[in-house]
């Protein structure tokens, strides 16, 4: 007996059923999406702790450079554009998945990767430049908080890129299978969440910091 047959015959399997609460366990797609949302919420809580630390330490430059002296808003604007655009292309990849168009999927994912990678490269370039000019994370509490907050987001994007490649490989190897689709749904949630965090970061760190 195949899994498919079971799914039809036992509506109250652990992974299945219709709706939840009065109807029993929710379908697996709902469960996975819901769980991933909860994870994203916890990730946002973690970021808010780093945001709080940044807010506390933003003025503690210890005689070193302040945000206004360091931030290059043009560079950051390009980073922002790249990341926001990558969210759009990630959405396109989602449409390609829905339409089961694998070639469009690969194209959209590749563009997403390129945009994400350029975001990371631009950020790295900014970091390297700052460290070289003596404004590394050990210079002051402000810079520690800055590098940690922005770097943590950068690490998330890097992990996202790794996940993106894995995702492409999975679609290539396994096709549009149910479990792969669920994973892709989580990936796109993750990628969009990184955008949301970046918008907050861009505002709090760069815009407010440059005007300080």
């Amino acid at each position: 007996m195949t899994a498919m047959d079971v799914r039809e015959r036992d509506p109250y399997r652990i992974h299945g059923g219709h709706g939840h609460a009065l109807g029993g366990p929710a379908p697996i797609r709902i469960v996975v999406g819901y769980g991933f949302w909860i994870f994203l919420l916890s990730d946002i809580v973690m970021f808010s702790a780093f945001f709080a630390a940044y807010a506390v330490l933003a003025g503690k430059t210890a005689g070193g450079p302040s945000g206004a002296e360091l931030f290059n808003l043009r560079n950051v604007a390009i980073e922002t554009a790249a990341l926001l655009l990558s969210s759009f292309t990630c959405g396109l990849a989602g449409l390609a998945v829905t339409a089961r168009r694998s070639s469009w999927f690969y194209v959209a994912m590749t563009v997403t990767f390129v945009l994400g990678a350029s975001f990371i490269l631009l950020e790295l370039r900014e970091f390297v430049h700052m460290v070289a000019s003596g404004a590394g994370p050990t210079r002051s509490a402000f810079l520690s908080a800055f590098f940690t907050l922005v770097g943590c987001h950068g690490l998330h994007v890097t992990a996202g890129l790794l996940w993106l490649l894995t995702m492409m490989a999975q679609i290539f190897a396994k096709g549009f299978r149910d479990d792969i689709l669920r994973r892709f749904m989580c990936f796109s949630l993750f990628w969009h969440a990184l955008d949301i965090i970046w918008v907050a970061l861009f505002t709090v760190v760069y815009l407010l910091g440059a005007s300080r």
Partner: peptide
Amino acid sequence: LAMLTLDRYFGFHFFTNEAGGN
């Protein structure tokens, strides 16, 4: 814990006495 780890491993200044840590 990540902040304390960065302090200890890479000389960051989240909670140190020096450089404005709190």
